[in-house]
Structures are given as C-alpha cells and as structure tokens.
Amino acid sequence: MRRRWVGAAGAVVAAGAVAAGVVGIGGTAAAQPQLPPVSPEDLVASVMTAQPGPFNGTVGIDNELGLPALPGAPQLGNGSQSARIWSGGDGKGRVALPSGEGEKTLVSDGTTRWAYDATERTATRSTGGAPEQKDPQSDPAGAATQMIGELRRTSQVAVDGTAEVAGRPAYQLVLTPQASERTLLREVRVAVDAEKRIPLQLTVLATGSATPALQVGFDDVTFGPQDPSLFTFTPPPGITVKDAPAREGRPDDRQGPPPGTRTVGDGWDRVIVAQRPAQQPGQEQQRPEGAPDLNALGSPVSGPWGSGRLISTAVGTAIVTDDGRFAAGAVPEQVLTEALAR
C-alpha cells in the first residue's frame, strides 16, 4: 500500500517537474557564448550600418520607469508588455500589440501606414515618410540604434562580454555617461547580435537601482523572408476608416511636437523644453476620465525661472511651470531649472 502511494507521489512530482519545465519556472541561466573579441568602436560602427534584412519576432518590454499610467497611452505605465513584429527589411513592417480583449495593429508598406484598433474598430491611414523618432515598442532595434547614435559622443563605450538573447549570441555593448554628464542614468546596455549586428535588447539602468528601469528586447527572433501580404492592409468591411491629419513625417497616433519646443544640451543631459498646449478657459474640467490632474502631480518648486510642479520618476524629472512651460529629461532637477531659466 505504501509503495503504491510512493508511486503516485512520484507521478505527481514528475508531472510537476514537467510543468515547471513547460512553463519555464526553472529560469535557465543564460550561458555566455564564446565570440571573437571586437572593439567597441567597430561594434558601434557595425550597428550603425547593419542591414538585418527581413525578420520577425516577439518583443518583451519590462517597464519600471515609474510613470503614471495615462489613458490613451497605457503602454507607458509600469508593467510588462509584449509585441509581435514582422519586418520586411525595406521600410515595410507590421506590429501587433495584443491586449486581453483586443489588439492594435500597425502596418506599413513603405509609403502608407495603417493603424488598426480592434477595440475601437477604427483604421487610421497616414502617408508620408517614415517617422524620424523610432518607437521602442514597435521598432526596438531601430530605437536602440538611434539611442546609441545619440549617446555615443558623450559616453564611454565598452564591450562587456557576451550574452545570449532570444537564443542568439550577442555582444554586450555598455554606454556609460562621461563624468561631465549630469544624468540620473547609470548606464545603457545594448545586446548586439553577433551575426546580424542589430540590437536585440536594450536595458536602461538608473543610478542607485540594481534592477533595470526599462528593458526592451526580443524574446525570440527569426531572420528570413517574410510573407509580403503581412505588409499590406485592406480595411475589413464594417469598420471606420480615418485619414490621419497630415503631419510632416509623424506617425498618426502620436502627437507631433507643438511649435516652441527646443532642446537644451545634448547626449545624456539633454532637456526638452516645450510649451504646453494652450488651454481654453472652461476646458479645465474636460480632462479624460481617470487622467491624472497634472496640477496635482508632483511637488511644488519655484526658482528664478518661475514656479511650477516637479515630477520625479526613476529615470527622469519633469517640471510643469505655472505659466504653461514644460521641461523634461533624464536629469536631476537642477539641470531642468537651468534649462528653463535659459
């Protein structure tokens, strides 16, 4: 009788072990692949000129930036997300952002871009060139490349060993701010695919925190030709089709910068100073449901530049002044006030 119970317990334990293996509880320690050494300069140069060709993959985003979740842009809030990406390698692409009960699809055939929201049942069409600002959610490789390009002049660039990302061997490129840079960030790590030389993973680490503030990277990626029908979009019957208002080279679903935006500084301590959109009197109450009241966020600050409210997150600081100006950057408060005073 006892033996039989032992057998049953064994079966249960075996099933549990299978379960753990299946769902990946064990957490496989990523081995460090052996790769020929490469100098940081060569690695950066090869990333800048990489032509990965067509690929598809799944991108995971771990966001601990500490931003408030805003309606309309819930993907900015803390948490994990995933996206499915197909790239034709020639400006064509498709991104699926699944949510529990819907999906947002972005399709670009090189000239026309479509954004389809299944929950709203609305397709938005926009034409024009590719957006100049890469969105890390839909184009992590492009966003990481852009980040390397912006930061490398003010960084110490090093190659910190190798890693395996999405099952592919990769070099770990580490950008550390130079001592003269006043920033809240400690370092940016980019895992660069050893063969294709495209960024596979981007990790942003803030000063004083061991866990990444933001990690965007491929969970799996496959290089090879893609079905061309993925990069065309035909609006299905019964949905609303809208044309996005023409903005020069801006993706339709993002706000272009209003006039009066300027940047102060460059590299790590770059600060964006902008004018908040003018609010008509009486519009105060028309805040979208559940949106945080910007006037109640943060703590009050004042200085020679005026007064306003200071909003701090793990990786950045923002000041919203009472006279409608707005400054933000991955910098301490003092840099913002200097930029505002300028």
């Binding site: 699926a96 699944p98 819907g102 999906e103 699809t105 399709v107 479509w114 389809y116 299944a118 397709a123 979009f233 035909t234 609006p235 299905p236 019957p237 019964g238 949905i239």
Partner: peptide, 8 residues
C-alpha cells in the same frame, strides 16, 4: 471572419 488584427 474579421480578425482582431484587421485581416479577413
């Protein structure tokens, strides 16, 4: 069937 991804 119209999928959530907007394809038919």
């Amino acid at each position: 069937l119209i999928t959530l991804s907007g394809t038919t």
